[in-house]
């Protein structure tokens, strides 16, 4: 029981971390990124390569993979998203365009990973030693994953809530149309949000690779779950993403433990649907 709670928190912490990235991209940059989960998986593979080929521990590989995720997403925004943002007459058009473009991107990333790594399940063994916490046995890699997620997520929240830069981000999230009136460059802010979202995706990928098996095609599921967390938490809300991510992780772990591991995705969907029907604006979103 206690063991499941901890495992649920590990999973939930990872979801929350990844979803924070997506909420930055969707809530602030207003790009619905269907290739988000594939960025996560690409980072997981990068951590895998760094670990097996160079013997780099995931903690160190964060120093490489996270900036790479940032740079990649920065590039994608400048190259693909910015022209779409520019030409879109309204937010609806941008939403559809970005969904379609990132759907294409999903296949590109997946295709590249498939060429490089093939379609097999991949994992590596890092800190795979049991530790005893108050009677529950948990793998050390999971524990470090949880701590890592908490540190990274916490740093982001502090950044957004305590700095001028964070204030700009939040202003754009609340009203992209009036932000320019107070001298905020929306495109620049959006690009930054999108890139940081990519950096978070990359960090999430590294964290996931520490304790989970993954394949080239697992990206879709991560995108889905991150989207569900974002919508549950209310688009653009970091505390919402945190809470919703934890809930999702706990539910999945308990469903897997007590009902059937094959039904976790179904249970996720069920929560999502129930929520959409009961509270369309999300758990923490403002009711309209």
């Amino acid at each position: 029981m206690f063991e499941h709670l901890i495992n649920g928190l590990v999973l939930g912490g990872t979801y929350a971390l990844v979803a924070m990235g997506l909420t930055l991209q969707y809530g602030i940059a207003r790009i619905m990124n269907l290739s988000f989960g594939d960025t996560v998986i690409a980072a997981a593979f990068a951590a895998y390569v760094l670990f097996t080929a160079l013997g780099l521990s995931p903690l160190l590989s964060l120093l490489i993979v996270v900036p790479a995720g940032f740079a990649f997403s920065y590039g994608i925004f400048s190259l693909i998203m910015r022209p779409l943002v520019r030409r879109s007459a309204n937010s609806e058009a941008l939403e559809v365009d970005s969904i379609l473009a990132t759907f294409g991107l999903l296949f590109v990333i997946q295709g590249v990973l498939l060429v490089l790594f093939g379609g097999n399940f991949t994992s590596y063994s890092y800190l795979n030693v049991p530790v005893d916490i108050l009677g529950a046995v948990v793998a050390l890699n999971r524990l470090s994953a949880l701590i890592l997620a908490a540190v990274l997520g916490g740093a982001l929240v502090l950044l957004l809530m305590r700095t001028r830069w964070g204030l700009r981000m939040r202003a754009v999230a609340i009203s992209a149309s009036s932000a320019p009136l107070v001298g905020i460059n929306v495109i620049q802010t959006s690009r930054m949000a999108f890139a940081i979202g990519g950096a978070l995706a990359a960090s999430g990928g590294v964290v996931i690779s520490m304790y989970q098996t993954f394949t080239v095609t697992s990206g879709v599921v991560f995108t889905m779950k991150a989207l569900i967390v974002v919508i549950m938490g209310g688009k653009g809300s970091l505390p919402g993403a945190l809470a919703a991510g934890l809930i999702l992780g706990l539910v999945e772990t308990f469903v897997a433990a007590y009902i059937d591991p094959g039904l976790t995705l179904a249970s996720t969907y069920l929560i999502f649907l129930a929520l959409l029907l009961l509270r369309p604006s999300g758990l923490f979103g403002k009711a309209s």
Partner: peptide, 17 residues
């Protein structure tokens, strides 16, 4: 056969544009 999905995705992005 191996680069199918990459080309496909690329074409699609171009179409959107």
């Amino acid at each position: 056969p191996n680069h199918y999905s990459i080309i496909l995705g690329g074409i699609f992005i171009l179409i959107v544009f």
